[in-house]
């Protein structure tokens, strides 16, 4: 092996995933996977469900799907992070199993579709809000079909309202607050964000 001359620092131009991007995305997913497992317990304990303002907590399940893409800016980061989060919550605390992987997939693909629609060139607040909304929409469809099949339409509408509010308004605020903090701490050196 030999290395000559300079190599560029941060991102390879074609958006190729470096190992660091992969592991950073996966660790964000893993951290939130554990967090979600805790959130599941709190949420179930609160008896929260359809129509409740507690649904504002929903961003806790969706955050990796936007945080990871904002940090690493790679195609597929949202889906990958969300799937890792789901797998970790399944394997570490035996929760939900295949259903968790399904909902992780839907939440991830929702956000991913929006970032892809902007050709992975925009990771600003409006796009993150849109990605959050898309992620919440698919999460809502999943929950409505599997958990809330008997619930009245007006309550479902309220459920969707709280979820979108959580994902499209609160989540971008939280995401950029986290990114700002990470940047201050120097944890994003060498990463595209």
């Amino acid at each position: 092996m030999s290395a000559h001359a300079a190599a560029p620092g941060v991102a390879s131009p074609a958006g190729r995933w470096r190992t660091r991007d992969i592991v950073v995305t996966a660790v964000i997913g893993a951290a939130f996977g554990v967090f979600m497992a805790g959130l599941n317990a709190v949420y179930a304990g609160l008896g929260a469900g359809a129509g409740s303002p507690w649904l504002l907590l929903y961003l806790g399940w969706l955050l990796p799907a936007v945080l990871a893409p904002v940090v690493v800016r790679r195609a597929g980061a949202g889906l990958f992070a969300e799937l890792v989060a789901a797998s970790v919550s399944v394997l570490v605390v035996s929760q939900w199993g295949p259903d968790a992987l399904l909902s992780g997939f839907l939440q991830g693909i929702g956000a991913e579709a929006v970032f892809a629609a902007f050709r992975y060139r925009r990771f600003d607040a409006p796009v993150v809000a849109l990605a959050g909304a898309a992620s919440a929409l698919l999460a809502f469809v999943h929950d409505a079909v599997i958990y809330y099949q008997g619930v009245a339409p007006e309550i479902l509408a309220l459920t969707l309202f709280w979820m979108i509010l959580s994902a499209a308004v609160l989540m971008p605020l939280v995401t950029f607050a986290i990114v700002r903090g990470l940047r201050e701490a120097g944890a994003l050196r060498g990463l595209p964000a």
């Binding site: 190992t19 660091r20 592991v23 950073v24 660790v27 951290a31 944890a187 994003l188």
Partner: peptide, 13 residues
């Protein structure tokens, strides 16, 4: 906690 997670990811990578 997230900072530590990211730093760990960096070393691991």
């Amino acid at each position: 906690l997230l900072v530590l997670a990211l730093r760990h990811a960096e070393r691991l990578a």
